[in-house]
Design a binder for these strands. Structure first.
Length: 575
RNA sequence: CGGGGUGUAGCGCAGCGGCUAGCGCACUUGGUUCGGGACCAAGGGGUCGGAGGUUCGAAUCCUCUCACCCCGACCA
């Protein structure tokens, strides 16, 4: 493609709406434009990247035995009512009515539709396993769309669903999909790790999220570099740092702590380390108060608490509620003599002694508090966020915490949908059996964003060669000089003939410097620069975007040089 | 939905103690340049997000409204 004829509107200045690198660069490099909050249009360059991601997904899904289908975006309310998600999904489900006032949902995911499709056709165990996927537009009316393509209201997703005869067969399919996902993200040039995750609204027995490691990621994760253990914060376990007080102290006593209501304040005041504190947080779970105890150096993970309690709704109690329950302002809650409240405690507190807690009285804390002696043993569990330095639950080495972008998720659904929607097959035994399902999603547009998030520098994008809209960016630096233009034109033909996707900057009006800047911004992994300066010495420059300086090759050897560089780039995207 | 912020030319912004709407980039024309976002000259482009109000007079003050962005709650 010649730049002079291409629709690639690059911009020099960063649009004020963008905050994170991928969003800024997708706008600046002319990949996309915003139409409304959370809705984007993809320009030619963006669309080319999307197509490349989709092609990789298709190849790997088919390789793993899945078949492609296409389901409607508008889906009838009845299907959603059947599983109860018409209610449960809430406002995130975009709903529309047709002219007959019939209700539809714009599909945010397609478990209901595909289960309906399969149950109508499925008769015998001989038809199983069945593994189907589609790549289609999804709608989710996000409370707050943000970060461009990372959280938009309309996006492209690959969603796949598997149907198996039994649990063991489903597990096999699940792990095949899991492996396919690892290959897909590797082929997209992404550093991505699967993490154990909380299974949330979709339910099911186990699930992995595929996280692209990036500072701007929305999800917190913990990982162990030593053994590869990785988990979402909602799921991550860790062995806490040792307690500072290991023996029972004297009887507990009150201390006056005027105006000190954070662990830090009181800790400084009493000259005691954070580990020796019990933080008491009051939550309201399904209308009932619950006190959650964690060590002073830890934070409560609400999802873990919520799952433990089996609560449908839970939130931190407001200041008035806290006064009502603890008879003291926020900052002085404690488990000693706390009445009428269920108390649960994080197990990191176990084995510690001489704790400091709130005194259930304004400006009063208690010291030398002991579990069991000063208040009843609470219900123990894992209720905290893992922190950097905790021991890995698998190998004991220190864990690291970081952030990730969720580009894919695999779920083992079990019988959740086949049960509620009666998706059954006739078994060898002549009886009906429910199919065991799995579902597997990849955010296509988000993967594009994640790729940029992971591969960019201050000048622009550095596309993995597998996703680059064009593999080679050919620059004609002095188009006004006939000899240069002639060589560049010839080069363009040769490159195309050699099988490369080539973007040819043949613009008469742009200066060499301008073309360099654009090339850096657009980020094609390879570039070929034809200029008068080089041709004088009989050479053409061949450059990798990730390298600072270009290599020089005699005109006849440009293709060889390029081939070597391309091979290096492909290595980075090969499973 | 709660808190904060922004809407002025295609983009980035100034003007906001009322009185003729500006700058940089981009765009058009001509000329000179031509290896890291060139220079000179001449141009085109705005119902100042929208509605109402105060005033002799509103981009500027007041009220309402819409859109967008950020933080939070939320998120197969």
């Amino acid at each position: 493609m010649r730049v002079s004829k291409a629709f690639i509107p690059t911009v020099k200045e960063t649009p004020q709406e963008a905050e994170i690198p991928s969003h800024k660069l997708m706008l600046r490099a002319g990949l996309m434009r915003k139409v409304a909050s959370g809705f984007y249009e993809y320009l030619p360059l963006g669309q080319r990247v999307i197509l490349k991601v989709m092609e990789i997904i298709r190849q790997e899904m088919e390789r793993a035995g899945a078949q492609e289908v296409l389901m409607p975006i508008m889906t009838p309310a009845e299907l959603w009512q059947e599983t109860g998600r018409w209610q449960k999904y809430g406002k995130e489900l975009m709903r529309v009515k047709d002219r007959h006032e019939r209700d539809y949902a714009l599909g945010p995911t397609h478990e209901e539709v595909i289960t309906d499709m399969v149950r109508r056709e499925l008769k015998s165990y001989k038809q199983l396993p069945m593994n189907l996927f589609q790549i289609a537009t999804k709608f989710r009316d996000e409370v707050r769309p943000r970060f461009g393509v990372m959280r938009s209201r309309e996006f492209l997703m690959k969603d796949g669903y598997s149907f198996d005869v039994d649990d063991a067969a489903c597990d096999k399919t699940y792990w095949a999909m899991f492996e396919a996902y690892k290959r897909i993200f590797k082929r997209c040039g992404l550093l991505c790790s699967p993490v154990e995750a909380d299974s949330g609204l979709i339910g099911g027995s186990f699930t992995h999220e595929f996280m692209v490691l990036a500072e701007t990621g929305e999800a917190a994760i913990a990982l162990c570099e030593a053994c590869g253990y990785a988990a979402n914060m909602e799921k991550a376990q860790g062995n806490p740092a040792a307690h500072t007080a290991r023996e029972t102290g004297g009887p507990h006593s009150k201390v006056l702590t005027p105006g000190k209501h954070t662990v830090q304040d009181v800790g400084e005041f009493l000259k005691l380390p954070d580990q020796q504190f019990i933080k008491t947080l009051i939550f309201i779970a399904d209308g009932k108060p619950v006190a959650v105890l964690v060590r002073g150096d830890h934070e409560v993970n609400e999802v873990k608490v919520k799952n433990h309690l089996g609560a449908a709704e839970m939130s931190l109690a407001g200041p008035e509620k806290v006064v009502e329950i603890t008879k003291a302002p926020v900052g002085f809650a404690g488990p000693v003599d706390l009445k009428g409240v269920k108390v649960i405690a994080d197990k990191a507190l176990q084995g510690g002694h001489q704790y400091v807690t709130g005194g259930l009285e304004k400006d009063v804390h208690l010291t030398n508090v002991e579990f069991g002696r000063d208040f009843p043993e609470p219900e123990w569990g894992d209720f905290r966020d893992v922190v950097s330095g905790d021991g890995c639950p698998k190998c004991g080495k220190p864990l690291k915490t970081g952030r990730g972008i969720e580009v894919g998720q695999t779920f083992k659904l079990g019988l959740k949908y086949s049960s509620s929607m009666h998706c059954v097959y006739l078994g060898e035994d002549g009886k009906d059996h429910e199919t065991v399902m799995g579902c597997y999603g990849i955010g296509v547009t988000r993967t594009v964003g994640a790729a940029i998030e992971q591969h960019h520098d201050e000048n622009g994008i550095l596309w993995p060669i597998s996703l680059a809209p064009y593999q080679v960016h050919l620059l004609c630096l002095n188009p006004a000089e006939p000899e240069v233009a002639k060589v560049a034109d010839q080069c363009y033909e040769d490159l195309k003939k050699a099988g490369y996707d080539v973007l040819y900057d043949d613009r008469m009006e742009a200066s060499a410097g301008f073309k360099f800047k654009d090339a850096d911004l657009l980020g094609m992994p390879l570039s070929v620069r034809v200029g008068a300066r080089g041709l004088k010495e009989g050479v053409i420059e061949v450059k990798r975007r990730r390298e600072k300086d270009p290599a020089k090759a005699p005109v006849a050897q440009v293709l060889d040089k390029l081939k070597d560089f391309a091979a290096e780039e492909w290595k980075l995207c090969t499973p």
